[in-house]
Design a binder for these strands. Sequence first.
DNA 1: ATCGGTAACTTGACCGATACAGAAACCTCC
DNA 2: GGAGGTTTCTGTATCGGTCAAGTTACCGAT
Lengths: 383, 383
Amino acid sequence: MPEPDPLAAVAVATGVRRPAAHVATIASVARVTLQTIADEVGVSRMTVSNAFNRPDQLSAPMREKILATADRLGYTGPDPTARALVRGSTGAVGVLLTDDLAYGFRDAVATDFLAAVADELRPTGLSLTLLSSEGRDGVVPARDVAVDGVLVFSCSLDSTARDWLVKRGLPLVLVDQEPDPAFPSVRIDDYHGARLAAQHVVDLGHRRVGILISGGSPGTVGRLADPRRDAEGWKYVSRRRLAGFLDVLEPAGATVVVHHVDQYGDRVAAEQARLMLGSDARPTAILAYSDVLAAGGLRAAEELGLTVPGDLSVVGFDDNPLATRVRPELTTVRQDAYAKGTSAARALTASLRAAKADRPVEPVEVVLPTELVVRESSGPAPG
Amino acid sequence: MPEPDPLAAVAVATGVRRPAAHVATIASVARVTLQTIADEVGVSRMTVSNAFNRPDQLSAPMREKILATADRLGYTGPDPTARALVRGSTGAVGVLLTDDLAYGFRDAVATDFLAAVADELRPTGLSLTLLSSEGRDGVVPARDVAVDGVLVFSCSLDSTARDWLVKRGLPLVLVDQEPDPAFPSVRIDDYHGARLAAQHVVDLGHRRVGILISGGSPGTVGRLADPRRDAEGWKYVSRRRLAGFLDVLEPAGATVVVHHVDQYGDRVAAEQARLMLGSDARPTAILAYSDVLAAGGLRAAEELGLTVPGDLSVVGFDDNPLATRVRPELTTVRQDAYAKGTSAARALTASLRAAKADRPVEPVEVVLPTELVVRESSGPAPG
DNA sequence: ATCGGTAACTTGACCGATACAGAAACCTCC
DNA sequence: GGAGGTTTCTGTATCGGTCAAGTTACCGAT
C-alpha cells in the first residue's frame, strides 16, 4: 500500500472486509487483437474484422471458426477506441453541464430533461456522456473527450467549453442557450413566461415588486443598481426572464428591486430575500427566477413573520416538483423539461445523421411554450 | 432593450420555427491535423505534438509559433480518439445501469448515488458515461463504448453486459452486486437491514406478514410458491433482502406471503399489494423491498379502506426522500446512497491508478451499514 | 582539440482497427 | 469453353496521434 488508503476510514467505521489475496489477474499478457486471431486461424486480419462487422463478406463456416477461436482466445470484439478512430464515430453523445456535474442529478428540472434525453436516445443505442464545463489538471472535457455530438445544456457564462465544442466542429444542439443560426436550438419561451408571471402580480395590484434572479457572474451579489445593464453578460435564460419581468413591471409603473443570488440554492436565495424584505418600502410581491429561489423567498417570509400570500406574494418559475411540496404551494410558470429533452435529443440525432451523410444540418429552432400556474402563493396586494 | 420579443409570436403560434437559410458550414475541407500544422510551420509532426503536450521539449518561441499557426488554422488540439488509442485511456469512466438509462435520473436513490460519483470524480477531471445494459441495432455499450473503467451499478439479472466488461479486462467496481474477489465491491448491508425491518414487525406482534419484492426475472408475477427457491437467480440485492426478511420471520413462526412485483414502480406494487390484502387471512404487516414499493402498499391500503398503521403496518427500505413525502411517513431501513457513490468512485479511481501503474488492484470490499428508521407507518399488530 | 552533456528537433514504429481495390476460385449460361 | 458475374478472401493505405530512441548543434570543461 504505497499511500494511505482513502477507504480505510470508511472501512473502520463500517466494517470492511478485505477478501483473501485472490487478486485480479492483470492481463499483462500480450493483448489479443484481430491479428492474434488472424494468425491463429490462418487468415488475414481483414477477414477477422469482417467476421465481426460484415458477416456477408465471408462464408458461414469460416465465420464460425473465427468467432470460435476469438472466443477461445478471449477476444472481446473490436477495440472501441481503434474503431472510433477509423470510423470517425464513438457511439456516445455528450451533454455539457456546468462545472458541477452533480447538478444534473440533483436539480429536478435537469433530471427531467436528462431522463427525456435518455429515453429518446434509447432506441439509437447511443450512450450518454456527461461533460463538465471545467476540468482539472489541464483536462478540458469539452476538448478532450471523444463524443459524436453534444447537447449544450447549461454552461457557465463565459463558457470556453462551448467554444471548444464549436471549434471541434461537432454536431451541437443548443438547449436554453443564446440561439446561433449555425446550430439547432431548443429552449422554452422564457421571455413570455416571465411576462405572464409579472402580469399576474400586476393584475393582483402589486406595485412594489422584488425580483430574485441568478445566472450572473459570480462576483455579482445583492441588489443591482441597474439591472438591465448589469444583466448584459448573463446567462441567456436569466437575461430573458429578467427582461420579461421588467418589460411588464416598468410600464405598469411598479417599483422594482432586483437582487442577484450568487449561488443557486434556496438557502442563499432566502438570504437575499431577507435583505429585500428588510428594506423600508418592502416589496409586496417577489418574482423568482426559479422555484428553487422562490422557495428561498418563502423561507425568508416565514422567518420574518410575513404571511404568504397575505403580506407577500411569491411567484416561481419552472413548475419544479418542489413547487407543490412547499407550503403554500407555489404559483409558478410551467415549462416542460421532458419535452425539451425529447426535442433536443431528436435534433441531435438528426444532426448526427446529417453529419454522417455529409448533408448540412437542418437549422431547427424549437421554442416550447410556457404557462402560468396559479396556486396558493400569490394573492391581491395588501392594503 | 424593451424591443418586441421576436420569438414570442412564434412561440404562441407554432412553437417551432426554421431560421433563414443560414446553414451550418460543414467543414468538408481537409481536416486540420498535427501534420497540417507541422507542414505549415516547417517542423516535424512530433514537435507540434510536443507543443501541446510537453512544453519543455521545445523552445518557447517555437512553441509560440506553433500554437499561433495552430490557432490560425483552426486546429482544436490533439484528436481525443487518436490520443485515446495510443495512450490507452479515454478520460471517461462508465456507469453500467439497467437497460433503461432514464432510471438513473428518476430514482432518488440512483440520483443520490450518481451525484456522489460526480462529486467524487470532479477533481479528477474524468467524465461520466452512462451505459445501458442493453443496446439496440447490435450495439452493446458495455462492449462498444470506450471507457477507462466502469461502476457496475445496477444491471439486469442475466447481464451479459457485465460479462462483456469483465472480458474486456476493464477496471471494475461492483456496486450492489454479488461480490467477486477479483474486483473491489461496494454495497450496503442489505441482509442486516432486512433483518432489522423484519424484527421490527415481529416485535410489534405481527405474525402474518406480506413481502413485496422485485428484482426477479420478468416472467415472475404475483405470489411465489416457494420464495427461497424462486429467488435463486435474482438480483443480488433482492436475494439478500428477501433472505434477511425470511430468516427472521420464519423462526418467529410468522405466516409469510411473498408477492413479486414485475415492473418496478408504486402502481404495479399497489396491484400486488391489493392481491395480497384481498386474501382471507390477510397480512397485518407488509415488508417492502423498497420505499417505492412500500408507497404502493400504502396506496393499496387506502383503496381497501385499511388504516396504516392501525390495520396494517408497512415498512419500506432505502429511506428514499419519498419516504417522508407519503402519508403516513414510512418506517424504513436507511441506506446512505451518497456514501455508496463516494466509496465506489474512490475505489474506481484507485483501480484506475493501479491499472496505469500496472499494479494489481487492491481488493477492497466496502459494506455500508443500514439502520432502521421508525416513523408513522408501523405499529402494533391489530387484535 | 577532445569529450561529455544538454537543448531542440526528427525518425520510424506502433496503437488496433476499417476501407477500398484487387485477386483467385467458383458458377452460370449460351 | 470462355465471357461475365459472384463469392470469398487478401494487401495496402490510412485514421491522428504518441513513444522511445535517435540526430544535430552548441557549449563549457578537461
